[in-house]
Design a protein around this nucleic acid. Sequence first.
DNA 1: ACAAAAGTGTTAACTCTACACCCATGC
DNA 2: GCATGGGTGTAGAGTTAACACTTTTGT
Lengths: 219, 219
Amino acid sequence: MLQVRDGSLQVMLWQRAREPHAHRWSLPGGGLGDDEDVEESIRRQLAEKVDVRQLSHVEQLAVFSHPGRVPGRPRVVATAFLGLVPSHIDPVVPSDTAWHPVDALPPTAFDHEAICDRARHRLASKLSYTNLGFALAPPEFTISALRALYSAALGYKVSATNLQRVLSRRGLLEPTGATVPPGPAGGRPAALFRFVSGRLRVTDPFAVLRPPSTRSLGP
Amino acid sequence: MLQVRDGSLQVMLWQRAREPHAHRWSLPGGGLGDDEDVEESIRRQLAEKVDVRQLSHVEQLAVFSHPGRVPGRPRVVATAFLGLVPSHIDPVVPSDTAWHPVDALPPTAFDHEAICDRARHRLASKLSYTNLGFALAPPEFTISALRALYSAALGYKVSATNLQRVLSRRGLLEPTGATVPPGPAGGRPAALFRFVSGRLRVTDPFAVLRPPSTRSLGP
DNA sequence: ACAAAAGTGTTAACTCTACACCCATGC
DNA sequence: GCATGGGTGTAGAGTTAACACTTTTGT
């Protein structure tokens, strides 16, 4: 589960009490029940940590199935997921559970660091060619705030100017009309925006080799 | 397993002899052994159908885990893969096995039609932003031949002119120097090309929101 | 007035599509 | 010569990054 917290992208981990890998930090998860699919299962597992209604997005990443991935046990096949929580939420988490910046992970259990890396990469990619930003952002936000979210998730500074232009041209962003008063240092009040849609949509489907344009189908 | 055959994208299926879903057509696959991961397993399963050295690309698609996906049995969790065979190969296949155009599938077992759709979509996407064309094409080919492969895989006509330009600009294609004599109808001899690399490479990593250019880091 | 923060205008570079045109060959 | 298929030139549209500039506020 990933969230932008305090200006950095963080992942929710819990500290294992027992072997194998006691005291190491682990991604939430667990066994698959007989009457659920893996999507239902991961939501059930995450529900033990947070209110699942706080999850703004969940998607499959990949299967991790190396025979030795869980030491001292028969092989465990894991289906890894990317889960996102919007930045305005601060879920109450159990005492063995905490958020960690993805750039400074504590010792992790099993192959969970590799799973984290996969999740970061997937998130960065989808921010570029979909409207997935809605899953990181609160319902309303200033462009500066959105810039901070994108910067944290992508790992490099994003220009507020160009971010607004790209997302607006694609029709993903709309102004609410409201503004936020500036801080004590002054400055122009910032306009508030929201994402037009809260459903994942691919906005830049093919970089090249697009289908022929319709006008070339004429007589 | 997908391949462009006779001008259309086709999938290799085998006809089930026994229930459930007897006589329906099924994707190759099977159980996961204790000492292999899912990638090794799928290659082992496919080896029963073709020479695995003929596989030019294999990648995970997704997990299919709906409890009712295999009727009359405890739930079976499947990890679906996309496998590609270059068009110049014509593998000898068992008698219960045949290639079918993805646009005209016979009645398929379980959720295998959905898996096929997922594979087609993944292939089409990756042709646009990676060099995955190498996995469909023979070692050397004319631009016309490559155009036919891309058109079949994408499902719409691709311009030979622009295909050559896009792939050349990206440094994916290089001329071999050789040419192919024209057919009986005449025409200019076609130059032969090859893919520079046979390893998957992302060539168009982010549609937008690229990291800042290096020159803006100057003093 | 001045500093600070937000937002807009503008330019240059780049990429892709479409289409006109030229090239090399068989008949 | 001329039809046929292969290949190149080029113009135009569309996006994006970079940066200068304007707007709106607090002190």
